[in-house]
Design a protein around this nucleic acid. Structure first.
Lengths: 187, 187
DNA sequence: ATTATTTCTAAACAATCGTTTAGTTTTGGG
DNA sequence: CCCAAAACTAAACGATTGTTTAGAAATAAT
């Protein structure tokens, strides 16, 4: 019927994701996105509506990308050890690529902690809730633990993961690894 | 010789500090600062040069304000327990005032982690270095610990403090307190 | 080949950013 | 009293933000 797009939408979303990941939502301008994605502003708006639409699509893409880490956590059966491996897996991308800073979801959670964008906020909460219930499930494998202990430890792990993502933005690999080891010494 | 200022500089800096604390540097606009400080843009520029000057003055004010927490940590002699109390003291302001989000220095550290503003960055590094050496000093009071263990634990505590400041932005008092207790279980 | 439809280029949009400037008001010293 | 110096008000600055629009280029179906 008409002309065909010269770009692949998932490809340009991935490039946008990396930019948001590195700089955060507000700091990333449409101008930067244009350059990084290699397409015109018009095309961005045609494909994703607006900046927020592109951002939400980037987060979706991010979640899909780290889904294999989650799957590994879900499918294994070694209790706390699985969580520890999950922590290591979560930061591994930070050491392979200098352009990556922490966890995109956690970064966004921090950036919008006092904002009131309901759509973005909901994305964050569901992510965190899923993580927490996974921790509870893993910890429950140790039948000697009381329900109260499990909830406390799950909370601890969630905050520790939150802190890990923050630390991964500025600290070295060695510091991060020492940190993870220490976290699991107390459990 | 001439007219006198109608405002007190330290008073307006304190108000600016709270705004930066809550929103971060970039998100806080001169317009918001005008309103919060109760003075005109012209007066802000006359007193502090520019936005960055006002921000640096806000950080100075922040450091002076939490200096008593540092002093308490320095002057006491109960080793690790002092550090634990320091952690509690560090987040206490978050529970008294809803307008406060985490630690201003840590927030700034995160916001500018990949920026290259040398002045602001140096402010952050000196703060973190001071904290680390204080941790080392406290941990060294336990003579049974090897130097390697001390350095590892100091690193852990620094990252934990970093994570705590991040968590204090979004988590509840109970979650924070559980987190602190868990941190010190492993030491 | 023509036509309808969609993509693209490029310019412009209003709003806001940090900053500056011109002009008025206040005030203390001669 | 008067004048000079500083502090105020308020408007404007150029640059950049996210978003929209007008028109040219391209393509599939008739």
């Amino acid at each position: 019927m008409a002309r065909k797009k010269k770009y692949n939408e998932t490809e340009v979303v991935e490039k946008a994701m990396h930019l948001f990941w590195k700089n955060g939502y507000e700091t990333t301008s449409m101008q930067m996105l244009e350059k990084e994605m290699g397409i015109n502003k018009f095309s961005i708006y045609a494909s994703f509506g607006n900046k927020q639409g592109l951002f939400l699509e980037s987060i979706k893409h991010y979640k899909a990308q780290i889904n294999n880490i989650f799957k590994k956590l879900e499918e294994s059966n070694n209790g706390i050890l699985d969580i520890k491996n999950f922590f290591y897996d979560s930061v591994s991308s930070n050491f392979n690529d200098d352009n990556i800073k922490g966890c995109l979801v956690t970064n966004t959670y921090n950036e919008f902690s006092d904002s009131d964008d309901p759509i973005i906020k909901e994305q964050m909460i569901t992510f965190m809730d899923k993580l927490k219930s996974l921790f509870v499930e893993k910890l429950s494998m140790d039948t000697s633990k009381s329900e109260e202990t499990i909830l406390k430890q799950a909370n601890f792990l969630l905050l520790a993961k939150h802190g890990l993502a923050a630390a991964a933005r500025v600290n070295s690999k060695e510091e991060i690894e020492d940190y993870i080891e220490m976290i699991f010494k107390s459990l």
